[in-house]
Design a protein around this nucleic acid. Structure first.
Length: 425
RNA sequence: GGAGGAGUGGCAGAGCGGUUGAAUGCACUAGUCUUGAAAACUAGCAUACUUUACGGUAUCGGGGGUUCGAAUCCCUCCUCCUCCGCCA
């Protein structure tokens, strides 16, 4: 959520930013927001005035009763009743305006960082770092990971359909073991980089879903447990970031570094075709997420640190990868700057997104009421950042495909102490 | 799931219809004293919105209600504790 002060004071910058994001009717929306805020202020002032009078009179009534002047007291009562009627009208309008204002504000995306390239689709994303690592020469009979899975018994999608439905893979044998190895590897790497490990709940309440920006709007992406009004988390970002909802930090608390492994649940409504084949897109998958809460002055340095961490993981796994800087049109609603990490799948001959790292600046913290006290003792919004480090399914897909040999699938060195085997056969 | 008890400032803990945004203690910050520290003393110490300012309003788990007036009474939801039931 953008700040009202920004909307009032930096209108031109905002209009440019919204245009970059192809936001329609930006000027009219901003005008409407300012008008609503003006009305909110004036109705609040009016309401406060009426309430103040009521309070003063109530005090008088008490005094009059005590001194036995019941008749005078009753006369004042009538006056208060009249004021109360007036104030309830003003209050209704006040609440209405506040709600409208909030709805308008929630509809505005975050302002893109100046470095974000112009563009509308993923075609316009900037290649921030070209291919790094080597694409293996697999020859003509290279198999995609779903065929390899059938051959070696790594995961079973049909069994998932029987148990649950499409998009819920069942990992088996060495495949399950590989999964567990990756989780432990990623968690160890995050811990070594100073992130505190959490095991958060896999379901969150509405306040949490709102805090990180899943609600309103994206409820269609989350599984919802109606009986208890809970959402299955689409990413560990939600519970981890919400740990600091309604918190006022001290400056010396920065940076706050958290990591967590969780399954993630996404409905992925509307997906189809080659995109969803095999492990490319599933409803339940495992991911290790890193989250930081940072001082506004340092958040962009921190973003680069997080990128370096993720890059290190891909290098250790010996996977060919590249880094994209998302263009304005592809940028998430809440993000100011996002880097996507993609690994190259030699058998599918395409790039697979395995991580997304973003700085949200104050967009989330404004909703979360996550602040710190600055040198002057004023409460100020902190910045939040997060990134996948990493999401498993496409890493597994890439490992299977890129490391296939005639006598099995080679496990990268760093993983062998976790898997306990060096080949899937 | 059933019965009972409880939720007050960073913490502990009063207040249980009328100058209570809230006693007191601890913690914290600044000052005095001291070579320095401790102790003692003095002062300050919730958040948000609003006002040029003085100030005003809201918030005592959340929401709603009764009343001229609610932290205090009523309803409802949430959370915690105790006991019972069920259970990995």
């Amino acid at each position: 959520m953008l700040l009202l002060s920004t909307i009032r004071e930096e209108r031109e910058r905002l209009l440019e930013g919204l245009a970059k994001r192809n936001f329609n009717d930006a000027a009219a929306t901003l005008d409407r927001i300012v008008a609503l805020d003006d009305e909110r202020k004036s109705s609040q002032t009016a309401l406060d005035q009426l309430l103040s009078e009521q309070k003063a009179l109530s005090k008088d009534i008490g005094d009059l009763f005590k001194s036995g002047k019941a008749a005078d007291a009753n006369a004042l009562k009538a006056k208060v009743a009249d004021l109360k009627e007036q104030s309830s009208v003003v209050e209704d309008r006040f609440k209405e305006v506040k709600l409208e204002l909030e709805t308008e504000l929630l509809g505005l995306p975050n302002l893109a960082h100046t470095s974000v390239p112009f563009g509308n689709t993923e075609e316009d994303n900037e290649v921030y770092k070209e291919l790094s690592g080597t694409i293996p020469d697999l020859g003509e009979d290279a198999k995609p990971h779903w065929d390899l899975s059938d051959q070696y018994g790594i995961f079973d999608l049909k069994l998932g359909v029987k148990l649950t439905g499409a998009g819920f893979p069942v990992f088996t044998g060495q495949g399950a073991r590989l999964q567990r190895a990756l989780i432990n590897f990623f968690l160890d790497e995050a811990s070594n980089a100073g992130y505190t490990e959490y095991v958060p709940p896999l379901m969150v309440n509405e306040d949490s879903a709102r805090g990180t920006g899943q609600l309103p709007d994206k409820e269609g992406q989350m599984y919802y447990v109606t009986e208890d009004d809970l959402y299955l988390i689409p990413t560990a970002e939600v519970p981890l970031t919400n740990i600091y909802r309604d918190v006022i930090l001290k400056e010396e608390d920065f940076p706050i570094k958290m990591c967590g492994y969780t399954p993630c649940f996404r409905r992925e409504a509307g997906s189809y075709g080659a995109d969803v084949k095999g492990l490319n897109r599933v409803h339940q998958f495992d991911k290790i997420e890193i989250v930081q809460v940072e001082h506004p002055d340092k958040s962009y340095d921190t973003l680069m640190d997080m990128c370096n961490h993720i890059e290190g993981l891909l290098q250790k796994l010996e996977l060919p990868y590249r880094i994209l800087r998302l263009c304005a049109g592809d940028l998430g609603f809440a993000s100011a700057l996002t880097f996507d990490f993609e690994v190259y799948s030699a058998a599918q001959k395409r790039w697979l997104e395995v991580s997304s790292v973003s700085n949200f600046e104050t967009f989330q913290t404004n909703r979360l009421k996550l602040r710190y006290r600055n040198e002057e003792g004023k409460t100020t919004l902190a910045h939040t950042l997060n990134g996948s480090a990493l999401a498993l399914p496409r890493i597994i897909a890439a490992l299977l495909e890129n490391n296939q040999t005639s006598d099995g699938i080679t496990i990268p060195d760093v993983l062998r102490r976790y898997t306990g085997f060096d080949k899937i056969k």
